[in-house]
């Protein structure tokens, strides 16, 4: 069917053709628009609605309660704990991801090592990224088990004198899950930064060397400024993603012991699917949405600015 051609060939249908031309792009986008409507506009509208009703899904005749749920959630001690935990978890992850990712990327970019050796190491370093979060969770539960291999190695090297309950200790669990998340997420930074490093022209380094700059100065005044846009994008994306992390927490500690590893995501999930407080859960989900959107807004702005 040569639809465009047929209309164009007949001058009498010129008007129709112009309308058709205008409709075409929307035609191609219609499955997308339909899916977006059903999968994002409608659900977000529903969450907003749920968050201002007394209780939904379990209740046949919900009643409008205004901002009551928001007051209740924001003053809830457990919510505040979850918010604090999420911020710690997210900020630590982003910072250490960046440090590890940049260190590994620079090692893998070293011209001192043969390209073959580099590509072998690159595959090894990227490994954590191949594993899905639930597999990573189980693997680290095995390794961090009180009788597991990590404790054995620490005892053997004399660093600790007794078996540590990494994931069920009130003092350590939050740090342990943060570590696991750091392990699972650094390859994304590493690969992106490696691509960024390879994009820096050698001439800039040569010019710097001629001007008498040493290694650390080149890093400070050439590498970092060149990578700055990538680093900012990575940190924002990672912030959004890590804030939403559910699987790792759910499958390692489930938010425990007590509430010491409770995150906004696990808190919300439990409200909805353990205690069936769907309205309060929706309120909490709204807070997470607003926080994510706040960060995303900066990200979209940057992307658009660099598109233009």
């Amino acid at each position: 069917m040569s639809v465009d051609g047929r209309f164009a060939a007949n001058p009498k249908t010129n008007n129709l053709y112009r309308i058709w031309k205008r409709v075409i792009p929307y035609g191609y986008l219609s499955p997308t628009i339909l899916l977006l409507a059903v999968l994002s506009f409608l659900p977000i509208g529903m969450v907003v609605y749920y968050s201002v009703m007394d209780n939904v899904i379990m209740n046949q005749n919900p009643v409008f309660v205004g901002a009551a749920n928001y007051v209740k959630i924001l003053t809830d001690g457990v919510f505040q704990t979850a918010l604090g935990n999420t911020l710690y978890f997210t900020l630590m992850s982003v910072v250490v991801h960046l440090i590890l990712g940049l260190t590994f990327a620079m090692l893998l970019n070293s011209k001192l090592v043969s390209p073959f050796t580099r590509s072998v190491f690159r595959v090894v370093y990227i490994l954590p990224w191949v594993f899905t979060a639930s597999i990573i969770a189980i693997l680290w539960r095995l390794m961090l088990n009180p009788n597991g291999v990590i404790n054995y190695l620490l005892e053997w090297s004399g660093l600790v004198s007794q078996k540590i309950e990494w994931l069920s200790s009130r003092q350590l669990a939050l740090h342990a899950v943060t570590f696991i998340n750091i392990w699972s997420g650094y390859p994304f930074y590493m690969v992106s930064l490696l691509a960024g490093l390879q994009g820096i022209p050698d001439e800039i380094y040569e010019a710097g060397t001629i001007d008498g700059a040493n290694g650390p100065q080149l890093f400070r005044y050439v590498t970092l400024p060149q990578l700055r846009p990538i680093i900012i994008s990575l940190a924002m994306l990672d912030f959004i993603w890590t804030m939403q992390q559910f699987t790792l927490i759910w499958m390692t500690t489930g938010g425990g012991p007590g509430r010491v590893t409770e995150m906004l995501s696990t808190f919300t999930y439990k409200l909805a699917f353990s205690t069936y407080e769907f309205s309060l859960a929706s309120t909490s989900a709204m807070v997470i949405l607003v926080l994510s959107m706040f960060v995303a807004l900066f990200y979209v702005r940057r992307q658009r600015a660099s598109d233009a």
């Binding site: 792009p25 929307y26 986008l29 997308t32 628009i33 977006l36 999968l39 994002s40 409608l42 659900p43 977000i44 529903m46 969450v47 749920y50 939904v56 899904i57 959004i240 804030m243 939403q244 559910f246 906004l264 995501s265 919300t268 999930y269 909805a272 769907f278 859960a281 929706s282 989900a285 709204m286 997470i288 949405l289 994510s292 959107m293 960060v295 995303a296 990200y299 979209v300 992307q303 658009r304």
Partner: peptide, 27 residues
């Protein structure tokens, strides 16, 4: 509608799955 649609498509990536989960469940 090109620009607004484009913005929406980029923005959707930042919507937390947990936010969509409850309405998805009832839908």
């Amino acid at each position: 509608l090109k620009r607004p649609l484009n913005m929406v498509i980029i923005g959707v990536q930042a919507v937390p799955p947990i936010t969509l989960l409850i309405p998805y469940f009832s839908l």
